[in-house]
Write a protein that binds this DNA or RNA. Structure first.
Lengths: 200, 200
DNA sequence: TCGATAACTTGACACGGTGTCAAGTTGACA
DNA sequence: TGTCAACTTGACACCGTGTCAAGTTATCGA
């Protein structure tokens, strides 16, 4: 069941939030802007979401549904080797970031002041950490994890490499294109985590 | 001439800003808090600084002076090889981040909404990029820069690795200690940028 | 000694954004 | 016909920034 069937206006709010946030103005999108875009009064927003933070979080979940996160993760879960799993995971997540970046940016902008937003974003990101941990663990089981790092350290390092902020820095501040960004992440993940013992 | 001699209250404001920001509450430190800490009225703050953003920027410059940035950069400038220059630069900057992180956090928190803060922080960070560019260039002159990356790309990549946000992620979100953080940055910078052609 | 000037104080206010409250309106359904 | 849910309008409190106006205090020079 698509969420749209159950509650049309809630769905319209989420769509509007999404499209406004797509525009890049993360911290500058106001509740009133969203209301206007959804053709609803500002107050009606609060009938559906208790506050801005929860509206944004709901929007990320909505995007997970629309973009079918599960399908995107399938290749990495289906990988037969640790190296392949890492490669597929980095690919999947790196290419997912641009899709959620608008909402992510807004949520990250709230973190400094809003405790709720902080918890919400941390929670979303801990799911990413789990993906990193799974890839590291697969690598370890193949005996391909670098000696220099413990699994926990390797997970943290990979997680950091795949952070939204690093994506922002390279793509926005440095002006890189997506392909080059992904290529660098692949190279760094491989160089950092994969043991080179068995290579020529 | 130390800035303290010239204008005592301005100096007291900067010291207060600094110490409040040290406490970590980047976005939550208000102008009134700073005024109170400096034993001054909130309005008097505006006699010295036009707005919050400029006060924060002035605080970063103050820290540069107090912590003697120039001296910290000397080892990297004095390096005789590209590899050594890179190592010294990464070391200097990585160990400078924790000192300015409080102010940096506050300034970064303002970026989403405040254009002035955005420009100010971007300007400060472009100085860091220049340090990265210098290290990359030294490496290139030694013929030790990896083939896979252009100098500009290598600079961007190093700059991203050395971003304050990555430091935050590893040190705060992941709970790493400073030494481990620096070690990882050294390893990644070396692995990413330095050509391994002449090794055993 | 007077008076000007700079540094600072007190107290008020506008603005913009979030979240809340109260009192309607509208339409569907029993 | 009445009731309930979804929504509207309009008001308001709160908070933090930045501004304005009028008053105090200390110092310095003529």
């Amino acid at each position: 069941m698509m969420s749209s069937e159950k509650n049309p206006t809630r769905d319209r709010i989420l769509k509007s939030t999404w499209s406004l946030l797509e525009g890049g103005g993360g911290g500058t999108v106001r509740m009133s802007d969203i209301a206007k875009a959804a053709k609803i009064s500002r107050q009606a927003l609060y009938l559906h979401f208790p506050n801005r933070a929860e509206l944004l979080v709901a929007t990320t979940r909505y995007l997970d549904e629309v973009y079918d996160v599960e399908a995107r993760l399938r290749p990495s879960r289906a990988a037969t080797s640790g190296v392949e799993r890492l490669r597929a995971w980095v690919d999947a997540w790196c290419n997912y970031i641009p899709l959620i970046h608008g909402v992510g940016k807004a949520l990250m902008a709230m973190q400094a002041t809003d405790v709720e937003a902080q918890a919400a974003w941390a929670n979303r990101m801990s799911a990413v950490r789990e993906g990193c941990a799974a890839a590291v663990s697969a690598l370890e089981q193949d005996g391909q994890l670098t000696d220099g790092l413990s699994p926990a350290e390797a997970t943290d390092a990979l997680w950091s490499l795949l952070s939204v902020r690093l994506w922002e820095h390279l793509r926005i501040d440095c002006g890189w294109d997506q392909a080059r960004y992904v290529a660098l992440m692949q190279e760094m993940a491989d160089g950092l985590l994969v043991s080179k013992r068995h290579e020529p």
